Amino acid sequence: MGLLVLLVVGGIIGWIASMIMRDNTGLFLNIVVGIVGAILAGFIVTPLIGGAPITSGVIGIQSIIVSLLGAIVLLAIINLVRRGSVR
């Protein structure tokens, strides 16, 4: 059940991040960016500010915002590598 929640929430977060960055990468990359961004931000940022990462199954506003920021940063890095500019 936790994996399904991570896929759904990660997909939504990746889609929102791609809308914020104005990037048209596709559904699969949106899901991957959302999940990887959520995991990285959950392990790096969440211990610094306190709270539970989205990977623990706790879906709160703090974990969603941290995951969204992680997905946006990851999408910016992907754009920088692919295109040479962040947009």
Rank of each mutant, 00 (worst) to 15 (best):
V58L: 09
L4F: 09
G37R: 06
A52W: 12
I49D: 12
I35F: 02
T55S: 13
L48N: 15
T55E: 14
T46F: 06
V32M: 12
L40A: 07
I59Q: 00
V33L: 03
S67Q: 10
L69I: 15
A17E: 02
N79P: 04
A38I: 09
I35S: 00
R87C: 07
P47Y: 10
R22S: 05
S85M: 08
L3T: 04
M21R: 00
N24Q: 12
A52S: 15
I12Y: 00
L29Q: 04
S56R: 05
G57P: 14
G14N: 05
I54K: 15
G34K: 01
V9Q: 06
G84C: 08
L74V: 06
Q62N: 11
V36D: 00
S67Y: 14
I78M: 14
G57C: 14
S63W: 02
L3Q: 04
G26L: 05
I13A: 07
G60Q: 07
N24H: 10
G57T: 14
N30I: 06
I77F: 14
G11M: 02
A76E: 06
I72R: 06
A38N: 06
G37M: 06
I44G: 04
A52T: 12
V66R: 04
A17K: 00
D23S: 07
L3V: 07
I64K: 10
G34P: 02
G34R: 00
R82S: 13
G11Y: 01
A76K: 08
V73W: 08
V81S: 00
S63M: 01
A41W: 04
I20H: 03
R83I: 08
L80A: 10
I54D: 13
N79Y: 10
L3W: 05
L40H: 03
I39D: 02
G51T: 11
S85H: 12
Q62L: 09
T25C: 07
S63Y: 09
N24F: 10
I49R: 10
L3C: 02
P47T: 10
R82K: 11
L69H: 08
I39C: 08
I16M: 13
V66K: 03
V8R: 04
I44L: 05
I72L: 13
G2C: 13
V9D: 05
I20A: 06
V66E: 02
I13F: 03
A17C: 11
L40T: 04
I39F: 08
L74K: 04
P53H: 00
V32P: 00
L40D: 03
W15P: 00
I39N: 03
P47Q: 02
G14K: 01
